[in-house]
């Protein structure tokens, strides 16, 4: 059983890392989590991003967050990626698999996966 002692150990470990967290938020991945998004499958998409980002060296640079309705329900699950100094990328009809691909190609490789963007789907 995962114990509170283990949680305590996480705390001790994190205390020393807090400084590293600063300067994060250069890249923001935002997942739409209103009813329309949740019904269309936003929960596994969000968790796939959280997992893939944290299991890579992107963790200090990329933050994954949730928002309400983005207003394009027919395209849900919708994910927006904001990068400093660049135009926003909107990915539509997302799945957990697409999320992993986007982490590899876009967040690590720097090239948006254009076939999943709203431009290619509307």
């Amino acid at each position: 059983m995962k114990s509170l002692a283990e949680l305590q150990a996480i705390k001790e470990r994190m205390k020393n890392k807090v400084i590293l967290r600063e300067g994060s938020g250069e890249v923001r991945v935002v997942v739409g989590m209103a009813t329309c998004g949740i019904a269309a499958g936003a929960r596994p998409v969000l968790n796939a991003f959280v997992e893939a980002v944290n299991n890579s060296d992107l963790a200090g640079k990329v933050t994954v967050s949730q928002t309400g309705c983005i207003g394009i329900c027919q395209f849900e699950p919708v994910v927006e990626i904001y990068e400093a100094g660049k135009e926003k990328t909107t990915y539509v009809k997302m799945t957990a698999e697409k999320a992993q691909e986007i982490v590899e190609k876009h967040l690590k490789g720097g090239k948006p996966v254009s076939e999943y963007t709203i431009g290619s789907n509307s």
């Binding site: 509170l4 949680l7 305590q8 996480i10 705390k11 470990r13 994190m14 959280v50 963790a59």
Partner: peptide, 12 residues
């Protein structure tokens, strides 16, 4: 237990 370590820390 965590004090000021946020709950959304991945390890948490």
């Amino acid at each position: 237990v965590l004090e000021d370590i946020p709950l959304d820390t991945y390890d948490v």
